[in-house]
Design a protein around this nucleic acid. Sequence first.
DNA 1: TTGCCATATATAGACGAACGATATATACCT
DNA 2: AGGTATATATCGTTCGTCTATATATGGCAA
Lengths: 110, 110
Amino acid sequence: MTIRPMQEATFMILTALAGGAQHGYGIVGEVTDISGGRVRLRAGTLYTALDRLKSDGLIDVDREEIVDNRLRRYYRLTPEGGRRLAAEAARLQANARAAMKRLDPGLGVI
Amino acid sequence: MTIRPMQEATFMILTALAGGAQHGYGIVGEVTDISGGRVRLRAGTLYTALDRLKSDGLIDVDREEIVDNRLRRYYRLTPEGGRRLAAEAARLQANARAAMKRLDPGLGVI
DNA sequence: TTGCCATATATAGACGAACGATATATACCT
DNA sequence: AGGTATATATCGTTCGTCTATATATGGCAA
């Protein structure tokens, strides 16, 4: 396949960032919220994914802050990251529709 | 995570079978059609996935036919496989919507 | 004041699933 | 004779997520 389909964890990280710049630990909370508690990002998944997404040019460091003597490294979507997320969302929607239509053919006629 | 999110190849195989029993090689063609040519299943992916899905109880062997001296092993969705596929489709749709809403907040208001 | 929990980032090792490549075999077409 | 389509199968690699562990601070409760 030309472009590997994105995994759920990666997709959710980008989705969280689509709402505005956010730092790593903040992303965990946003992803939990967005998914209604279904997706709980693990630290290992998060930080390795952030490194990978950064080196792939889909996200960038927005700024760094020190709050309570703790570093907060904020990330934001790059234009390319926004495009990739939109493309992935379209793919998911198309896949979901294809499955639903086949599970219940009546739905397609409406 | 309680239940691992399904990979695209696996999801597409189940989606193909949601339309009725089909044999391995036939699934490849159906998945190509369903996805508009985007997903091209490889033999390695297909047959290992079929073995795994069978041992997980999501699909079952429907029947075996010999056509032109070649074996065709037909698979079908189990009730459990149908439920899992429906659940996955709902997950994909929810994820797609969450991303689209954040990429373009105006869409959510409609 | 000690211990636990939440916050916050980071890395190592294991594992599962898809990938590319290769194998075998038949039928059809040129 | 050779290439393409059909059809199933296995091997080794790669990639991303997982669990586990590490480090460090601040707040709260026993």
